[in-house]
C-alpha cells in the first residue's frame, strides 16, 4: 500500500498530531515501507479464527463500586499547568 502525504495528513488529523513538512515526507515513505512489510500477514490462514483470544484462567474481574477517600488531591492539582484556584483551565470547547 502506498501512503502519500495526503493520507498522512488525514491520519495525523485523526491522531491530533501536528507534523512538520519534513515529518510528513519522512512518515509517508516509512509508512509505505511498514505497511508493505505488514502485508505478509495476508498469507496466514485465519478463515476459521475467532477474533479475540482469551487467557485460560482469566475471569471477569469487576471492581466493587465502593467509594474510597483519595488523600493526595493536591499532588494531582499541582500537576496542572494552567489553573485557577483548584480548577484546571481548558480552552473553550463550544463556539
Amino acid at each position: 500500500m502506498q501512503t502519500d502525504e495526503k493520507l498522512i495528513d488525514y491520519i495525523a488529523d485523526l491522531s491530533r498530531l501536528e507534523l512538520t513538512a519534513e515529518e510528513k515526507k519522512k512518515y509517508s515513505i516509512q509508512m509505505t515501507e511498514i505497511l508493505n512489510w505488514i502485508e505478509q500477514i495476508n498469507k496466514a490462514d485465519i478463515k476459521d479464527e475467532d477474533s479475540f483470544m482469551y487467557s485460560s484462567q482469566a475471569i471477569n474481574n469487576r471492581a466493587e463500586d465502593i467509594a474510597e477517600e483519595f488523600t493526595d488531591r493536591k499532588l494531582i492539582i499541582d500537576n496542572f499547568k494552567d489553573r485557577e484556584f483548584d480548577f484546571l483551565k481548558v480552552k473553550k470547547v463550544i463556539e
Partner: peptide
Amino acid sequence: YYLKAQKIRNL
C-alpha cells in the same frame, strides 16, 4: 489490519 492481527494472535 486490526481484526486480522487479532486472529493471528489466536494462531
